[in-house]
Amino acid sequence: MLTGIHVVCVGGDARMLEVIKQLSEMDAIVTLIGFDNLQSQFSGVGRANWTEDALKGAHAVILPVVGTDDAGKISAVFSTEELFWTDEHAKQVPEGAAVYTGMAKPFLKNSCLKHQIRLVEILERDDVAIYNSIPTAEGAVMMAIQHTDIMIHGSNCIVLGLGRTGFTLARTLQGLRAKVKVGVRREADYARATEMGFQPFYTRNLLDHVTDVDLLFNTIPTMIITAQIIAKLPYNAVIIDLASAPGGTDFRFAERRGVKALLAPGLPGIVAPKSAGRILANCLSQLILEDSHQRGNV
Rank of each mutant, 00 (worst) to 15 (best):
V65C: 09
K260Q: 12
F78C: 08
T222L: 11
V66T: 13
I122S: 03
N205M: 05
M142K: 13
D126R: 15
K181T: 09
I20H: 08
I158H: 05
P273S: 11
G269W: 02
L233S: 01
S244R: 10
E88N: 14
G277I: 06
E121G: 08
D36H: 11
G72R: 01
I145L: 11
A90Y: 00
L233C: 01
I122L: 13
T86N: 04
P273G: 09
D70E: 15
C9M: 14
T203Q: 13
F198R: 10
C283Y: 12
R118G: 07
L289G: 09
F201C: 06
E124Q: 15
A276H: 08
G161R: 11
F198E: 07
I288L: 07
L38G: 09
A261F: 04
F78H: 15
G139C: 06
V141W: 02
F253M: 03
V93F: 00
K105A: 11
V238T: 13
T226V: 04
V61A: 03
G46P: 02
A28G: 09
V65G: 01
A97W: 08
I62H: 01
P64G: 00
T203W: 05
I239P: 01
L17K: 14
H6C: 07
D189C: 04
D53Q: 11
S244M: 09
L216I: 03
H59I: 01
P265A: 09
I74M: 02
L119D: 02
A54W: 06
